[in-house]
Simulated scan of single mutants.
Amino acid sequence: MSIQFIGMIGHRLASEIIPATGPIFDKQYIADFAKAHENAGFDRILVGYASDQPDGFLVTAHAGAHTSRIKFLLAHRPGFVAPTLAARKFATLDHLLDGRLAVHIISGGSDAEQRRDGDFVAKDHRYARTEEFLQVIKKSWYASQGYDHKGEFYQAENAFSHIKPHQSHLPVYFGGSSDDAIRVAGKHADVFALWGEPLASAEETVKAVKAEAARYQRDIGFSISFRPIIGRTQEEAWAKAEAIRAKAKIQIEKSGYHFGAPKPQSVGAQRLQKAVELGDRLDDNLWTGIAALVGGGYNSTALVGTADQVSDTLLKYYELGIETFLIRGFDPLNDAIEYGKELIPLTRQKIAARQQATAQHQLPEAHAQW
């Protein structure tokens, strides 16, 4: 498996430890943030979705205009744009980016968040809607003639899109941890995205999703998200983690804003809460300090240590079949630059060395069979 690194860009400088600064749509920051990821060796960058934030299509288009190689992952929630139109929007954006787009489909884990945008569909129906949304999207992307669709949530008559994705296959990433999410992912997703969980629970999810995909004779990839905290020594890294916790606690208390938490309906958030209950430090260097502060509301678990120690941990997840790592820091722009100096190249080197050793080991066995 090849290894992929995904970063995440925002539309202005802000994090759990940095109060939001600058205009709400900071064009220069978006451009600089995207270029920093490209220069640091990331493969792709995620543009998120929130009901009160700037439009992700335009953030992605602007970032794409200031980069040339790095790919993009645009988060999208079904329910607000008709799938026939969404398909054309995605395809058009993929042409604008010269085939650098993937979409990350999120059904929504909070009724309150969904209702801000006018969506009152209950959570247990949102995955059914998502599945139908993806069915229609793919028809528009790949059908060579007009089609009719009559479903529970969408209807279309002689629908057709003249603009197809620039790529022969536009990748679909999928978020969600419930049984319904796994069912839909197994049928439609190219990559299933996990938040940063302990090794044992991550392995369980990988096995469950693979089994579901196998029902449809499909292969599926996996991504996992962490917030690496890197120090020159292990002690320095853990001191940074504690400083981040202290700053985040103060900022949350002052602002009352919990960065998307809590999400009581989200199974992913519930899984992170269970990890929090297991302890502050899990496995070798998985830290749940910020996840505890925000109620597990999003990808908030960290890997703490030197670049060498964190890369070793990433390799353990890689051995589970997870080949994509979404990493973002608490000092977003500076951490992205820092990851590119050692963590990303070091992890790639270790994976390459491991693959070479495996190939050399298999070669004598193949000769023996001859």
Rank of each mutant, 00 (worst) to 15 (best):
Ser2Tyr: 11
Ile6His: 10
Ile6Gly: 00
His11Arg: 06
His11Val: 08
Leu13Asn: 14
Leu13Phe: 04
Glu16Val: 11
Pro23Cys: 03
Ile24Lys: 13
Phe25His: 09
Lys27Asp: 09
Ile30Thr: 06
Ala31Cys: 10
Ala34Thr: 08
Lys35Asn: 05
Ala36Met: 10
Asp43Trp: 07
Arg44Gly: 05
Ile45Met: 10
Phe57Val: 13
Leu58Val: 13
Thr60Ala: 13
Thr60Met: 07
Ala61Met: 08
Ala65His: 12
Arg69Gly: 11
Lys71Asn: 14
Gly79Glu: 04
Pro83Met: 02
Leu85Trp: 05
Arg88Tyr: 03
Lys89Asp: 09
Ala91Gly: 05
Thr92Ile: 04
Val103Arg: 04
His104Trp: 08
Ser110Thr: 10
Ala112Asp: 13
Glu113Val: 14
Glu113His: 12
Ala122Tyr: 10
Tyr127Gly: 01
Tyr127Thr: 08
Thr130Pro: 02
Gln135Cys: 03
Val136Leu: 03
Ile137Lys: 03
Ile137Ser: 06
Lys139Asp: 07
Trp141Glu: 03
Trp141Pro: 00
Tyr142Thr: 04
Gly146Asp: 12
Gly146Thr: 11
Tyr147Met: 05
Asp148Arg: 01
Phe160Asp: 00
Ser161Met: 07
Lys164Tyr: 07
Leu170Gly: 05
Leu170Glu: 02
Tyr173Ala: 06
Asp179Arg: 13
Gly186Ile: 09
His188Cys: 10
Trp195Ser: 06
Val206Pro: 05
Val206Gly: 00
Lys207Arg: 15
Glu212Gly: 02
Arg215Glu: 11
Phe222Tyr: 08
Ile224Lys: 03
Arg227Met: 13
Pro228Phe: 04
Ala241Trp: 06
Ala246Phe: 06
Ile250Lys: 14
Ile252Leu: 12
His258Pro: 02
Pro262Gly: 05
Pro264Ala: 06
Val267Pro: 05
Gln270Cys: 05
Arg271Glu: 11
Gln273Leu: 15
Lys274Tyr: 11
Lys274Ala: 15
Val276His: 01
Asp280Gln: 15
Asp284Gln: 15
Trp287His: 03
Ile290Glu: 01
Gly295Ser: 08
Gly297Asp: 02
Ala302Trp: 03
Ala307Asn: 05
Ala307Leu: 07
Asp308Gln: 15
Thr313Arg: 10
Thr313Pro: 00
Leu315Ile: 13
Tyr318Val: 08
Gly321Asp: 02
Phe325Ala: 04
Leu326Val: 10
Pro332Met: 04
Glu338Ile: 09
Leu343Asp: 00
Leu343Ile: 09
Pro345Asp: 07
Leu346Val: 10
Leu346Pro: 04
Thr347Met: 08
Ala353Ile: 06
Gln355Ala: 12
His361Gln: 14
Leu363Phe: 13
Pro364Arg: 07
Glu365Asn: 12
Glu365Cys: 10
Trp370His: 13
